[in-house]
Structures are given as C-alpha cells and as structure tokens.
C-alpha cells in the first residue's frame, strides 16, 4: 500500500505494450506462436502482480529506454492499482493459454479479448478495470455470507440519531 509512487506514464506505457502484444496474439491465434506469446504475456503479468509495476518487465523497459529520453515526470501515482490490475490480467492470460493449448479456441479467443479490452481501456482512457472489479467482487462474496442486506446489524445502530455532528470540519 505504501510503496513509493511511480511515474504515471510507466503503467500507461505498459498498458500500450500489453495491448499490442494481445492484438498480435489474436492475429496469430491458433498457431503455436500465438499461444507461446500469450504464455509470455502471462509471465509478464505474474511478475508485475508479484514484484510490482516498477520491477515488471514493461516497467523496467520504460525506465531504461523511455524515461531517460522523456521530460522529467510531473505526475505520480500509487503503484497498487496497476499491480492489482496485473493480477486480474494474469487470470485472463492463464485461461487463454489453457484454452489455446487444449484446443478450445473460442475460450482462448474470449479470454484474450477480455484482457485486451482491459489493457486498451487502461492505455487509451486511463480506466482501471481492476479497481472496478475489486468492489463488485467484495459485494458478491459478502452477499453470499450475508444474504439479507436490508437487515444488517439492527442491534448496533445508535439511537442517538443525528446528535453526533460536530461543528466545523476536522483538518
């Protein structure tokens, strides 16, 4: 959580590379080359999800090749959101590799397409699909444990109503 902020252009660059790699995977789908390329992308996702975006292959590429040639960074971001997205990408890439490997081409195509859509939304719009999935997943698993949301914790509710307000806004 408290990892050092990263240059926002790093993860964005990684999303573009991922988009291109996954596009090539789709264009070569069904061939051994396509499957191996997707497997390599899966490894890239795993490294990013475990070591963080700074040490992820595309992150290293950005810092070594591009960052020295660009203007100094002006915007920074928390590395956790893109790291979480790498974990989501891992799931899709692994399913895709398995699909292609066992000959279930539609499964491989669908999984690759979903990963591509997520990478492209991140690259072109800066939209973090991993963040969106996070809350929906929390809600889904919690509903399973607490099936009735309307009657949560009735005995812990306070009878004091709105007396808890305090004048002014705390710093």
């Amino acid at each position: 959580m408290s990892a050092a902020p990263v240059d926002v252009r790093g993860p964005r660059f990684g999303a573009w590379v991922t988009t291109i790699v996954l596009a090539v995977v789709l264009l070569t789908a069904g061939s051994p080359f396509g499957t191996v390329l997707l497997a390599l992308q899966a490894v890239v996702f795993v490294v990013g999800a475990t070591l963080g975006v700074r040490r992820a292959p595309y992150g290293v590429l950005f810092r070594w090749l591009l960052a020295p040639r660009l203007a100094p960074p002006t915007a920074f971001e928390d590395p956790e959101p893109p790291r979480f997205a790498q974990a989501v990408g891992t799931v899709f890439a692994v399913v895709g590799v398995l699909g292609f490997a066992v000959g279930w081409t539609p499964v491989g195509l669908a999984a690759t397409a979903l990963a591509l859509a997520a990478a492209f939304l991140n690259a072109a719009f800066g939209f973090c699909l991993g963040c969106e999935l996070y809350l929906l997943q929390r809600r889904a698993t919690s509903r399973w444990r607490h099936p009735d949301p309307a009657t949560t914790d009735p005995d812990t509710t306070s009878p004091t109503g709105k007396s808890a307000t305090r004048r002014g806004v705390a710093a």
């Binding site: 596009a23 789709l26 264009l27 070569t28 789908a29 397409a113 591509l116 492209f120």
Partner: peptide, 15 residues
C-alpha cells in the same frame, strides 16, 4: 481470420 474479427470487434466495443 477469426482472430482479426475478434480483434476489431473488441477494440471497437472497448473504445
């Protein structure tokens, strides 16, 4: 060929 169609449709929908 199928891959190209999937690629184009995916990018259009995502955009």
């Amino acid at each position: 060929m199928t891959g190209l169609v999937v690629l184009v449709v995916t990018l259009l929908l995502a955009a």
